[in-house]
Simulated assay, not measured.
Amino acid sequence: MSQPLRIVVIIPDLAVMDDQEDHVRQQLERSRALRMGLLEAQYDVVATLPADVFLHERIAQLRPDLIIVDAESEARDALEHVVLATRDERRPIVLFTNDPDTTHVPDAVAAGVCAYIVEGLAPPRIRPILQVAMARFQHEQALRAELKDARDELKDRKTIDRAKGILMQRQALSEKQAYDRLRKLAMDKGVKMVQIAQRMIDAAELLG
């Protein structure tokens, strides 16, 4: 049986507000409903944190699987803290908000928000929302990995081509002969061909 998702919930810092104000009570009720919905869906809420300057350290220590931002208003401010806290290690982010201003949704999605839910905190909706968010995040991570592999492959190919050019010019070899030479050297040394190619380039630059 798989372990439940470890979730950190980000909420406004209510300690700095007047606890008699209506919007504070509403936020407390929202946060309570969210936690109850997560518990009912058998998720593991490891912490409830304010969106402040210490968030980066706390996220790094807790290493959650998913981050939920519960923002009654001022969603942009909360997101800025979360994005800064996750820039070194991306994590799926889900935003629940009552903020009707959605002009910054494109920026939020670009920053890593996998689900942006306005007035949709009903407990029965929580599990499908988080499942979709996790699936989207995993898909995007796979695409990022594929893109990185493609870029690395292109970079390696350019390095090998450059080393082949050095051999062709300095030893009067054909392209195939230069390639075979690099491949044999790599096999003899037990390393990748791109490593041999880079060493050859470095030596050529050193010797001029």
Rank of each mutant, 00 (worst) to 15 (best):
P50R: 02
A51Q: 07
A51E: 09
A51R: 04
L55P: 10
H56D: 14
R58T: 05
Q61A: 12
L62E: 03
L62H: 05
D65V: 08
D65T: 01
L66H: 02
I68A: 01
V69Q: 10
V69I: 11
A71L: 15
S73V: 13
A75P: 12
A75G: 03
E80W: 12
V82M: 01
V83Y: 08
A85W: 09
D88T: 04
R90T: 03
P92F: 04
P92W: 02
I93L: 08
N98T: 08
N98H: 02
D99M: 04
T102I: 14
T103I: 07
V105I: 13
P106C: 01
A108P: 02
A111P: 03
C114V: 13
A115W: 05
A115G: 13
Y116L: 09
I117A: 14
I117R: 09
V118D: 11
L121P: 15
P128I: 00
I129W: 03
M134G: 04
A135M: 00
R136K: 06
F137C: 05
F137T: 04
R144C: 02
A145W: 04
E146M: 06
R151M: 10
D152N: 06
L154D: 14
L154P: 05
T159D: 13
I160S: 05
A163Q: 14
G165M: 05
I166N: 00
I166L: 01
M168W: 07
S174D: 01
Q177T: 07
Q177M: 04
L182N: 00
R183M: 09
L185M: 15
M187N: 08
M187W: 06
M187D: 11
